Amino acid sequence: MSNTPPDRLSVDPDSPFHDEAVLARGVGVRFNGNEKKNCEEYCVSEGWVRLAVGKTLDRKGKQLTIKYNGTVEPYFEDIPKES
């Protein structure tokens, strides 16, 4: 497996961008230089993340998310970070 996270990844099992093997390694996301723990989905090439909003659910029973544009830097948590 590569040491580079995929360009697009989702934690939703119904999404075509869901990858259980990659998520099992632990993927962290830096968005505009800040660590985000509530990231539901990201896309590096398009420059956006979907962040969970509280405990609010949408009409399908999934957690409500908001899409933000900016710089996305995914990384694997099992690889030491460069300082």
Score class of each variant (00 low, 15 high):
9 L>E: 02
9 L>A: 03
10 S>L: 06
11 V>E: 06
11 V>M: 04
12 D>G: 07
13 P>W: 01
14 D>I: 05
14 D>W: 04
15 S>D: 13
15 S>I: 08
15 S>W: 13
16 P>W: 01
16 P>Y: 03
16 P>K: 02
17 F>W: 03
17 F>D: 09
18 H>M: 02
18 H>N: 05
21 A>R: 15
22 V>R: 05
22 V>W: 03
23 L>V: 06
24 A>E: 14
24 A>L: 15
24 A>K: 13
25 R>Q: 11
26 G>H: 15
26 G>F: 15
27 V>I: 07
28 G>E: 08
28 G>K: 09
29 V>A: 09
29 V>R: 09
29 V>P: 03
29 V>I: 10
29 V>N: 06
30 R>H: 12
30 R>M: 10
31 F>V: 00
32 N>E: 02
32 N>A: 02
33 G>H: 00
33 G>D: 02
33 G>T: 00
34 N>D: 07
35 E>C: 13
35 E>I: 15
36 K>R: 10
37 K>M: 15
38 N>C: 13
38 N>S: 08
40 E>N: 14
41 E>M: 13
41 E>I: 12
42 Y>T: 01
42 Y>F: 00
42 Y>E: 00
42 Y>N: 00
43 C>K: 07
43 C>H: 08
43 C>L: 11
44 V>W: 03
44 V>M: 02
45 S>Q: 14
46 E>M: 11
46 E>T: 05
47 G>K: 02
49 V>W: 00
49 V>C: 01
50 R>Q: 10
50 R>Y: 07
50 R>V: 06
50 R>M: 13
52 A>T: 14
52 A>F: 14
52 A>C: 15
53 V>E: 13
54 G>S: 05
54 G>L: 07
55 K>L: 15
56 T>Y: 09
56 T>V: 11
56 T>W: 12
57 L>W: 12
58 D>G: 04
59 R>Q: 07
59 R>V: 02
59 R>F: 06
60 K>E: 14
61 G>K: 04
62 K>Y: 01
62 K>N: 01
63 Q>E: 12
64 L>R: 11
65 T>H: 11
65 T>F: 11
66 I>V: 12
67 K>R: 13
67 K>G: 08
67 K>T: 10
